[in-house]
Design a protein around this nucleic acid. Structure first.
Lengths: 320, 320
DNA sequence: CTTGATCTGGCAACCGTTTGCAAGGGAGGA
DNA sequence: TCCTCCCTTGCAAACGGTTGCCAGATCAAG
């Protein structure tokens, strides 16, 4: 069996409370004793049991991270950043995937509630009302969703969408297709909101869609048929699927139709043509979410991170 | 505060032990009492505290999952599958990323040791010796590494490499470059092992390399210079980077050089040309690793999963 | 009406740590 | 020399469950 605090205590003839204090409040124990304890602990390979500690302190030093789909390349960098940041704060991260299903999301939050100090909810599919209710059980930080009074990390999608639309307008595009994401997605709403205000542009909406390549593949025909010369897609995956579908109909990108995605994921960078996209600050968001959770005692600080348009090869001048 | 077992007990005038048994050994409590307890528990929103339970039972119902790099698209499907499988067994999964650094890997395992029932070590970079030593602290299942007496999930890389080499040979390639991965990678060794036996082929080795696109990009010039007409790359990311680098030198794939990767990740499927690759059974491996951990009490069962060659567009007949 | 087997549920110890409280001891001031 | 006061450490009660043991109740058989 692993060494416990008792083993260490008896190994150096001292009470367990002294050992405990050596780790959690070193200034309360005599320097000589402290080093004796430390030596014994090191010798026995002792590490405090976090579960037992959590019992008395009420803090688990664990946090949950819930995403819609780990396999979506948008999330891994965010997860990685969050996990690294958490580790620096001596926290561990439980990662769970909801398969885009709100019910799974709810159940997951409920199970996490008692065993983590807080949950990072990334691009949730749950309704605001439900999230507010669940927040009574466990502190949240929400990523890519604005909920009153709840700490949030937002990516400035509106700004990105404006840049993208501006870029397309500058290339002479007038009729632009907007391929949205799944229901319940905040980013999707933000995009549509901006688009609705875009003066002088003729916008055609398609949605809701699966936020994956198959989602893009599925609307390719409709998009082609609507007469738009450019497309703003919910994310890079959708954009890539769209390009794929267009290619199957012998419609060239960007020669005949320009395509812009969102996220700036790896496959987009590797694609031919390289995807023009609105880069989302996933790494910064992961880090920030962790910090927000640890700082705020549930206070509603909101951080908005900038996005940036990255022009690559999938956009070009509008066809006459 | 959240409801505890005591609240439930007093809410329905029963001893805590009865409540406890209602959940952990229902057959020991009278049906009428049981439903009364269940009703009260449901009413108060009671959920047993796993940390407290772990204290007495010694089982945490948590497992650790350690990968070299979450951002490598090879891992997310594996993680997702493992997490889903674990959830079905009422387990939670801690995910951690080592940034390809063996020291981080070791430290991570040590911290995990006391708070999980076992660790899934995916494509470890640690030496066998070190892993064996750490296995004294916590049960392991190793993915993509063979260590005597330790449960493992292996992907049949050798078989895949043979198929790939056979495919290239069939297309008339004779001089083939082998771009390996990082030091400490079992798959990399397997590939080289097979290649060494390949009769009638003229093989050129390049390595070690970063297992990423930049790794591929970096060796592109060397590969081009060595006169090979085909390349077998450590993984798809490397293959993609290689194609990118080749393109920059105006060398066409597959017209001038054929490229095969390993893994079958999303970016490879979306790439132009679509990548010919050896598909790795990541999803099955994730599931299997969880089952192995839960079944074996550390027994050394080894499961080997088949790989498959997926011929797409990045391979073609050898140039004269 | 016993007797003994079978259920059911209470009691209390225990898991590994933390932490408020108090006691012992040494130092410094009066 | 005696009295504080601070420093250090021990004691014991939590924290939220689980589980072996035991006693009372129930019930069928003799």
């Amino acid at each position: 069996m692993a060494a416990t605090i008792k083993d260490v205590a008896s190994a150096c003839g001292v009470h367990v409370s002294t050992v405990s204090r050596t780790f959690s409040a070193p200034h309360l124990v005599n320097a000589a004793t402290r080093s004796r304890v430390l030596a014994a602990a090191d010798n026995l390979g002792y590490r405090p049991n976090r579960a037992a500690r959590a019992l008395t302190t009420g803090r688990t030093f664990n946090m949950g991270l819930i995403v819609a789909d780990i396999a979506n390349p948008f999330f891994p960098p965010l997860i990685k950043a969050a996990q690294a940041q958490a580790r620096g704060r001596d926290y561990h991260v439980f990662v769970a995937d909801t398969d885009e299903d709100p019910r799974v999301e709810e159940e997951l939050i409920r199970t996490f509630a008692k065993q983590v100090d807080g949950v990072l909810l990334c691009s949730p599919r749950l309704s605001n009302r439900m999230i507010e209710r669940l927040a009574e059980d466990v502190p949240f930080v929400v990523v890519n969703r604005r909920i009153k009074g709840m700490p949030a990390v937002l990516m400035n999608v509106a700004q990105g969408a404006k840049l993208a639309l501006g870029h397309l307008a500058g290339l002479g595009h007038r009729r632009i297709a907007l391929v949205s994401g799944p229901i319940g997605s905040w980013t999707s709403n933000e995009m549509q909101g901006v688009a609705a205000e875009a003066a002088g542009l003729d916008l055609v909406f398609f949605g809701p869609n699966q936020p994956t390549e198959s989602g893009g593949l599925a609307v390719a025909a409709d998009v082609a048929a609507c007469g738009a010369t450019a497309v703003l897609a919910y994310n890079d995956l959708v954009a890539l699927g769209l390009i794929e579908g267009l290619a199957a109909m012998e419609i060239g990108v960007p020669d005949q139709i320009s395509v812009i995605g969102f996220d700036d994921i790896l496959p987009g960078r590797l694609n031919r043509p390289k995807l023009t996209t609105v880069a989302m600050p996933a790494v910064a968001a992961g880090r920030m979410a962790v910090d927000l959770l640890l700082q705020s005692g549930g206070e509603g600080a909101t951080v908005t991170l900038d996005t940036a348009l990255i022009v690559r090869e999938s956009t070009g001048r509008a066809q006459k």
